[in-house]
């Protein structure tokens, strides 16, 4: 049995980075992003990355770190509104950008991980997204073809992982992480908690360890993008 546990994020990336590589990074906004692996990727100094991630982080955090250092050549995302450096580089023609509808992006990744090279969807019919894509009618409705998406390395954030790489995710930090874990030639996961194999009830494993090649336990900052509350909790006994 190959040992999957690594002692640091940089060590977990060792031997996997190369110029022009494609990287998926899980997360929605800053929720459920592999913070430590992104920092380690920046520190590796690798250039011309194609980054596949729903968003582009914010200035100075998440994938924003790799944009600051100009390590990203191309982004495949569905929404990039929260990053000024991204906007500057894009408008200056320094950064390639491919927008995918969010559901199309998720399905492309799911399909890629499942060995499905293409599929048809209604999403984007009649829009710029459909331009140049094969079209087919099914039951009198028009669909466009989209392709499966894989990557050289998938960077994943999970809540808990065991020594076999079985994973559990927490709340909405799950998002793109489980599907991206299936779509990497190599999948590296950072977890809040690392536990011994056998700890999880097999009924409640979200991602089976077959998809995970490397695992590291690391502390996350878990920055909140938009703290929104409804005010103080009412004191008990108050009307």
């Amino acid at each position: 049995m190959t040992e999957k546990i690594y002692s640091s994020a940089s060590e977990a990336l060792e031997g996997l980075t190369f110029d022009g590589m494609s990287v998926m990074a899980g997360g929605f906004g800053l929720c459920g992003i592999p913070e430590n692996l992104i920092s380690a990727l920046r520190d590796s100094g690798v250039q011309n990355i194609t980054a596949i991630s729903n968003n582009a982080g914010v200035d100075g955090f998440g994938l924003g770190l790799l944009l600051e250092t100009r390590q990203i050549k191309k982004m495949i995302s569905s929404y990039v509104g929260e990053n000024k450096e991204f906007e500057r580089q894009y408008l200056a023609g320094e950064l390639e950008l491919e927008f995918n509808p969010q559901g199309t992006m998720a399905e492309r990744i799911r399909a890629g991980g499942a060995g499905i090279p293409g599929f048809y969807t209604k999403t984007g019919v009649g829009t710029v997204i459909a331009e140049g894509k094969p079209v087919r009618e099914f039951n009198d409705e028009t669909y466009i073809m989209e392709t499966g998406l894989t990557c050289d390395v998938a960077l994943i954030k999970a809540w808990r992982g065991d020594t076999q790489g079985n994973l559990q995710f927490k709340d909405t930090a799950r998002n793109f992480n489980p599907i991206m874990a299936t779509a990497g030639k190599v999948t590296i996961v950072e977890v809040d908690e690392l536990v011994e194999v056998g700890t999880f009830d097999p009924n409640f494993i979200h991602t089976p360890g077959i998809y995970v090649q490397r695992l590291v336990q690391a502390k996350c900052e878990k920055r909140i993008e938009k703290v929104t509350t409804r005010g103080p909790r009412p004191v008990e006994g108050d009307a």
Partner: peptide
């Protein structure tokens, strides 16, 4: 939305 101080970064 959560009450003040009860925000969960994993839940948005």
């Amino acid at each position: 939305f959560p009450f003040d101080g009860e925000e969960n970064p994993d839940l948005i």
